[in-house]
């Protein structure tokens, strides 16, 4: 009888844990690649990303695809769980060659309507520390439920 009661209790607990809570409904996760394109080598860069509309929160920051920007860029930890973030990184020893590079990846938690992402290049510099012209884009990957 005790075993039967215990089995029933365990089944109830598992069922309760697997039932989606109302607050989790419609929640999905998205990965956003930050891509920098320039005709000059890049030794320093800074961008600002904001989300507009929907319920979107930044939950993680990852580095880029290749050195020297493969470590997570500098950001304010307070930006996590918010919809705005400033990313910045530099390396005095190496630079990214001219071209198109993924310099960072953001992980976001979305809920409700699909938010829009805006990105602004604050600064990009070459190995001499001179400001260079560059474009920055966000490349959203398909969300995962």
């Amino acid at each position: 009888m005790k075993r039967l009661l215990l089995a029933f209790l365990l089944c109830s607990l598992e069922a309760a844990a697997s039932t989606p809570r109302p607050a989790d409904e419609g929640v999905r996760f998205r990965t956003l690649d930050v891509v920098l394109t320039s005709d000059a080598p890049i030794a320093a860069w800074q961008v600002e990303i904001t989300t507009d509309g929907g319920d979107s929160r930044i939950v993680g920051v990852e580095g880029g695809a290749e050195p020297p920007f493969d470590a997570p860029p500098r950001h304010d930890p307070a930006a996590l769980q918010s919809g705005r973030i400033i990313l910045a990184a530099f390396d005095t020893g190496r630079a990214l060659p001219a071209g198109k590079h993924r310099v960072a990846t953001l992980h976001l938690r979305e809920a409700g309507a699909a938010p829009r992402y805006q990105i602004e290049l604050v600064a990009a510099g070459d190995p001499a520390g001179e400001r260079v012209s560059a474009t920055v884009t966000v490349d959203p990957r398909s969300p995962t439920p």
Binding site: W45, Q46, T92, V122, G125, G129, R131
Partner: peptide, 20 residues
Amino acid sequence: VNHDGRVDVLDAYRLARAVE
């Protein structure tokens, strides 16, 4: 640091190079 009228990553970069 680079006296361009704004503070951004290029100031940090310039100072890092100066320190090195």
